[in-house]
Amino acid sequence: MATPDLSPAQLAAPTYPAELRSQLFQYVVQLADTSLILAHRLSEWCGHGPVLEQDLALSNIALDLLGEARSYYQYAAELEGRGRTEDDLAYLRSAVEYRNPLLVEQPNGDFAYTIVRQFLFDNFHYQLLKELKAGPDARLAAIAEKSLKEAAYHLKWSSEWLIRLGDGTPESRRRLDKAIAALWRFAGELTTPTPGESHLQELGLVPDYAALLPAMQAHVAHVLAEATVPLPTAPVAQLGGKTGRHSEHLGYLLAELQYLQRTYPGLTW
C-alpha cells in the first residue's frame, strides 16, 4: 500500500558483497521491526482513544509506520535473496530474532505513556530519516524520503502533546512525570550502536548516531522547557532489544500478531 514509487534501478538490490549484504539485511530488518512493533502498539488504541479526533490521529501514525515497515521488510527480503516475503519476516520470526529497541515494545499504558514513548521515538526517527535520505543506499534513501514527511508530522504531534500534558493540569503533569520516569531509560538504546551497526556506520553506509545527537538533544530541551518539565537526569540506559534480548512484553505482542500464521502455516490470507 505505502511502498514508495521506486525506479527499476532503485528496486534492484545493490550488489553488496555477501557479508555486507547480510549485515545490511540485519540493519534493515531492525528498522522494519521497530516501525512494525510501534505501529502495532499504536493500533491497539484504535477505538479506545481519549477523543475521536485523536483516535484518528493515532491510527494515522500507526498506518504511516506500518507502511514504512513494509517497505523495509520488502527491501530486507530482497537483500536476503532467499525468497522470504515481508510477511515471512514479520510473522515467522521469534522474539529473539526481532531486532526492535526495547522502547517501542513497551505497553501503551495511559495516554501519557504513549505520548512519551512516541516523542522519544519520533525525535530519533526524524533525525535518522533525515540522514538516511542523504545516505549512499538508494533504496533506503527512497524509503526515508517518503517517511521523513510523515515523521516530521509525528514529531510535531507528539511534541505538542507532551507540552500540553506537561503544562496542562496537575493530573496530566503527574501522569507525564510518571511516564517519563518509566520510559526515559529506554531512549539511550536508540542511539547506542550494536556492533553490527557500528560496522555499517564506519563504512559510511548508515547514519552515525553520534551525529544525530545534538539535534535530538536540542529538540528535547526545547520541548521539555515549553512543557515546564525539568530535563530528566540521564538514567542508566536499558539495552538489549536491538540484539534480540527483549522485555517480557514482546512475546505477548508477537503471540497475538503472529497467531493466524502460526496456527495455520503456509496459507494465503
Binding site: 485523536q54 495516554f111 500534558l165 496542562g168 493530573e171 496530566s172
Partner: peptide
C-alpha cells in the same frame, strides 16, 4: 480515561 487528557 480520556477525561484528564481532554482537560489537560
Amino acid at each position: 480515561e480520556g477525561a484528564w487528557v481532554r482537560e489537560a
